[in-house]
Amino acid sequence: MMNGITIGQFFPGNSLLHRLDPRVKILLTLCYIVAVFVPSNWYGLGMAVAFLIAAVLLSRLPLKLIFKSLKPILPILIFTALLNMFYVSGGVTLWEWGVLHLTTQGLIAAAFLAIRIIALIAGSSLLTYTTGPTALTDALERLMRPLKVIKVPVHEIAMMMTIALRFIPTLVEETDKIMSAQKARGADMESGGLFKRIKALVPILIPLFVSSFRRAYELAMAMECRCYHGGEGRTRMKQLHMGLRDWLALLTMALLIGGMIVLNVFVTPVL
């Protein structure tokens, strides 16, 4: 029933984007999110889109995946575009009906915003498509390290995330098993009204909670047995190294944002 579930949306591969240091990828994503909001003219936005297209091509991901990541935001996209179309006024009025005015300026604003949102979502989805969950939490831990100064338990947070991710498939399997067992005892989960169906979940949720707690105790015990005592003095098997391509990627991003700022100064804004 729940076979073949994928955790997160990691799409394994060996492209340039896959091989980038995960820390760099997180930083690039954060920068890119800011970058799409920097340009005030078409040239700047064009640069952002070009950067995105280059990144998608370098990732060698099937284009279908990128479109799939855009699907859930489609309603938001349409809503904001419509709102902009009718709220922003200026330029030539194309159509009028009561309080609704459709102007050329409104259309431009709507298109501008829609492209921004698409670039934003597609760009950030590249991060999760090309980075495995463990690499992601690892990188997060390293990037959040400065927060230790203000007593944020960085290592513990990262460990919690890793454990949570690790146990999702286990939990799915367990749910499957318990569901089968209760169905074998005649549990009826497919019929009845809402209330009846919610009640039918009790025989599944209770054993699931019980086993989650049991698993947590067992894991804690196993970690204690191996003398786990938090992040202090802990070394890692996979060290993260910044290579030439990582610095180049950061440089490209710096150039992108720099270029956008320059364009903002010299080109008249569209909005």
Binding site: K177, P203, P207, V210, S211
Partner: peptide, 9 residues
């Protein structure tokens, strides 16, 4: 099922 004790609720 195997380990049926996990289904008690």
């Amino acid at each position: 099922f195997q380990y049926p004790e996990h289904q008690l609720f």
